[in-house]
Design a protein around this nucleic acid. Structure first.
Lengths: 142, 142
DNA sequence: CTTTGTGCAAACACTTTGCAAGTCC
DNA sequence: GGACTTGCAAAGTGTTTGCACAAAG
């Protein structure tokens, strides 16, 4: 698992996008945080650093990055879209509907499931970032 | 698997909700259509019948029905929120991102996956209506 | 220099809310 | 009659867009 951290600029050019400050900043933020983030979390993170970009820019940047597969987008609920940096390994989550907490979900289980679906249905599920909701066993709210 | 079609009124009362025209109408629509529907599709369906309800009412009704577990709510990727009538058996779907087609997904596979997740993480996934995206094997568009 | 990105403000779509009048039980 | 629903209009949110200017290649 080599950890050659490519520079945001290289990543962008490698994906055919121009390397601009806004894009580099968003990449830094998403890559540092290993969790998915909402748009406003991204904006706050940038503000509290130094960089300040218009929210429309952030939306556009996130859309661009998603378009070339550098970040994954998922919708947990309407108006609650989250973005996450895509690393080598997939990130799957369990979200507790009682307390709102997000827990990691073992990728192996997911891969296994995807294989079975493929065997049975001839369908290749694209799940680099699956979010399943439910109730966790020791939920503090329940 | 008896198919005693309960009346909307009975279903509502059985769930502790008052039987009102709006709720009955929404139930009829969702139960007839065996697919998931967006809010505006529900509204259109009602309009083209006879009943006309305010959209805020539809939102409230769908929320109420979801609250007592009569309908399932899911959000597809960059699309809208969809609602679906919950019958005895769960409805899971595979959605092809190339052609947009929706295919059924074997419930048994899903149940099995949910059990494994529970064993491993102590988390009970609530999936009465799972939608996974990917590419189908014999997609006409691909 | 040509193409693409950014800020700004305004527009949008979807969803929620306050309240008075109407309905259900 | 008392509690709950509905319509209406208005406000919220999150997201998108048009356009002039700025920056990247």
């Amino acid at each position: 698992m080599p950890d050659t951290v490519e520079s945001p600029t290289d990543l962008l050019r490698g994906s055919g996008l121009r390397a601009t400050p806004a894009r580099r900043a968003v990449i830094e933020v998403l890559r540092t945080k290993h969790k998915h983030m909402t748009v406003s979390e991204v904006i706050d993170a940038l503000d509290s650093k130094d960089s300040k970009f218009d929210q429309s820019t952030i939306y556009r940047v996130l859309s661009d990055l998603g378009g070339v597969g550098l970040v994954a987008e998922s919708r947990l609920s309407p108006g609650d879209t989250v973005f996450e940096w895509i690393s080598q390994s997939n990130h799957h989550h369990l979200q507790c509907t009682a307390c709102g907490r997000t827990l990691p979900l073992d990728d192996e289980l997911v891969q296994d499931f995807i294989s079975r679906v493929h065997e049975r249905h001839g369908f290749h599920v694209n799940a680099t970032h699956l979010v399943l909701s439910g109730i966790e066993h020791d939920c503090p709210v329940e």
